[in-house]
Amino acid sequence: MAYNINHLNELEAEAIYVMREVAAQFEKPAILFSGGKDSILLTHLAKKAFFPAKIPFPLVHIDTGHNFPETIEFRDYLADLLDAKLIVGSVQEAIDAGLAVEEKGANASRNVAQIPALLKAIEDHQFDALLGGARRDEEKARAKERFFSHRDEFGQWDPKNQRPELWNIFNGKKHFGEHFRIFPISNWTELDVWQYIAKENIELPKTYYSHVRPCVVRNGTILAVSEFVQPREGEEVKDMQVRFRTMGDATITGAYLSDADTMEKIIQEVASARETERGNRADDKRSETAMEDRKKEGYF
């Protein structure tokens, strides 16, 4: 029987089905755009889902102010290319307004401070659905996440009271002030994402490919030296050939030694990796339930 599609096409069909449900069921949906490969992938899927119409979602970026410059450049370029509206929520503004507090101490990050900035953007723009690129294989608290994840009027997630999700019927009914986080690529793994990016020839920021840049090694993690990461006493700045597997804040996203400068080499590398892509994210290492704790508060 020829009526058979391969797993990448099936994952694509599922993600596109989810996106079309979002467009049909919600008034003001948006794509949460982090600048990372997963959210770039979402914009690509959205383009395919609604072709020849424009994508029916604006891009929302919560800017911590600690991003790699390459991330911001690429964000603006992509929004322009897609002719999509770009909405930027600023963590710095949230801190200045007293909504968020800057972390102190040697390993401070703005990861947690994103939450109030995000919730403010949701309120200001009255978004009722936010599409995100999170995947269930990333982290154990995400393994139980729904495609349509309900958030109460405070933006909180209640892991004990999630709506059952049956077949491919997605219940997006909600009360005023509540919203949904939607994860169309829930069932993709990191390898699926890379394979699909290669197959579709999707353009990515250069930071995903191997390049040489000045770095320091801190607590076993390679960090790129930048405006936000300066060498501390006893740390030596070295030019290293690295690439990034995820794109978070410059302060917390670890680089990997790699000579993978083409898509083919990256896929080989991902396929033989012995560590998850979040294995080098300082934010997840804080405690065994770090991700779950942040999610309950309204994290991505």
């Binding site: 269930r136 154990k140 608290a141 393994a143 139980k144 892991p159 004990k160």
Partner: peptide, 22 residues
């Protein structure tokens, strides 16, 4: 395969958890 905090404490799985391998 254990996911959420309360499950780890009680030693039981209380929800549907999705796992991937190939």
């Amino acid at each position: 395969t254990d996911g959420l905090k309360s499950e780890r404490e009680q030693g039981i799985t209380i929800d549907v958890a999705y796992r991937y391998f190939s």
